[in-house]
Amino acid sequence: MPNVMELKEITKIYGTKIQTQVLFGINLAFEEGSFNSIIGQSGSGKSTLLNILGSLDRPTAGDIIINGKNTKSLSSKELSDLRNESIGFIFQFHYLLPEFTALENVLMPYRISKKPITKEVLDYANELLDIVGLTKVKNNLAINMSGGQQQRVAIARSLMNNPKIILADEPTGNLDSDSTEQVYELLRKINHQFGTTFIIITHDRHIAEKADRIVEIKDGRINLDITKANA
């Protein structure tokens, strides 16, 4: 499978007078449709790496190639467009708007892009809510849903723009073990159904051990990178 995202010799240094180097020459490539986990202790540099992968932050040096496009030469607007069309985000905290319903939250990325909500768009949002098993509660306000339900709404929302890549930062960090299992099954289902590439930062062993690939970051470097033989 072709690579959907590549990092070449990525370094990240914070500060000017007092410099702190967080990433040291990271080279990583993610195949289209793959299911990857990134693990590492707190302070290892994995969140910085995720921010750079998601083009939320720029590296100090090195190249990021998303969907075949090198992001180095892109303007902020072009980068933002590439991000919106290529990458969906899931965070530990769902960041749903509490006064909106599940359906309205799922539609939010579309509303932000100021495109009209056509019947097709509405149908797709409903389909996504069906996939995540929330059809019955789609008109409930986000604030009235359980933690597991809220995270599933956030997952449906991340898929609204049909991204090729989902970046997830501790998606099960706030969930109990049953909800964790449900969220994992859901991510896998999306991975199989849409061929979406998943890059998941996690402390959760139960998620990491089920991924097809485990990348361990230690002190800003790749310490370990193993892929299941049958992946």
């Binding site: 062993r205 990491a208 051990e209 485990i214 310490n223 193993i226 299941k228």
Partner: peptide
Amino acid sequence: TNYYNIVITK
């Protein structure tokens, strides 16, 4: 046996 345990094995 479990490939996740390669992490601690290292």
